[in-house]
Structure formats: C-alpha cells, structure tokens
C-alpha cells in the first residue's frame, strides 16, 4: 500500500487519523487536537482542540472544541508523542494571564520583522516580500 500512495500528498495523513496532532497555522497559532478527518486539500477536522500559547518557560491552553481548518492555512502538522508530552519542562499558567503578554510578544516580533526586512530591502539588495506579509 505504501508504494501506491505518493506520500508527499495529503494521502500521507491516513496514519494520523484519530491521533493527537499539533497544527501550526500561517498566522502562527498552534493548535493541539485529535485529527478526525481530512481531504485532498488537507482541510482538517480536529476534535477536542485547544490553542496553546507560549512565553519563555510558560505556556497556556484554551479549549476551542471542534475545528475545521482550511488546508491552505496549515503550515505544519505533526503527531504528538503522548509519553514525551508528560515530561514537558515548561510550566502551565492561566490562559488569560498569558494572553496579553503573548499578544504583546507577537506585536513586537512583527515590528522587529518589519524593521529587519526594511533594512534588507534598502541596504542589502533584497527584494520586498510579496504576498500577504506572513513569510509564507
């Protein structure tokens, strides 16, 4: 069977169904959830999903239920090793507490990236990033 499906297409996801997966979206969101279904565009159905945000040694989770993600927004899809997940060295904190810090982090990172690409464009002969400005 392995030889029949080109395993670079979404056919590769067949082994991931009913597994707990990490999904990273183009906007930087990190979703953890159980993959229930997918199609040829890598549109995904995730169940028992939660969004995770990080700041230094801390992370926080917010449950968001059932999610249908449009495939083109998916950057990365990876299976979570349930054994290793328990041995996490990060500490979990309240989502609301971390949310504002995370928002601030994202904003300052964006400013930093814009300044960087401006310098690359003006002084180093790089071209402007096309598209939607999210690096993808």
């Amino acid at each position: 069977m392995d030889s029949l499906i080109p395993f670079t297409t979404s056919g590769a996801l067949v082994d991931c169904v009913d597994r707990k997966m990490l999904v990273i979206l183009r906007d930087g969101r990190k979703l953890h959830g159980v993959l229930r279904s997918y199609d040829q565009f890598a549109n995904l159905v995730l169940e028992d999903t939660y969004e995770r945000i990080y700041h230094n040694e801390h992370f926080a989770e917010e449950p968001i239920g059932v999610f249908v993600v449009r495939g083109e927004n998916v950057v990365l899809l990876g299976e979570i090793d349930l054994d290793q997940e328990d041995e996490l060295s990060l500490s979990q904190v309240d989502f609301k507490a971390l949310q504002d810090i995370h928002k601030h982090d994202t904003a300052s990172k964006k400013i930093h990236e814009e300044a960087k690409s401006q310098i690359l464009y003006e002084q180093k002969g790089f071209c402007k990033e096309g598209g939607e400005g999210d690096g993808y």
Binding site: D27, V45, G65, F67, V69, N73
Partner: peptide, 10 residues
Amino acid sequence: KYLRVPDNLL
C-alpha cells in the same frame, strides 16, 4: 482561515 463548529456536531 478556519471554522469553529459546535462540540457535539461530530
């Protein structure tokens, strides 16, 4: 980008 649907939908 995505759709968030009711938990009991499945």
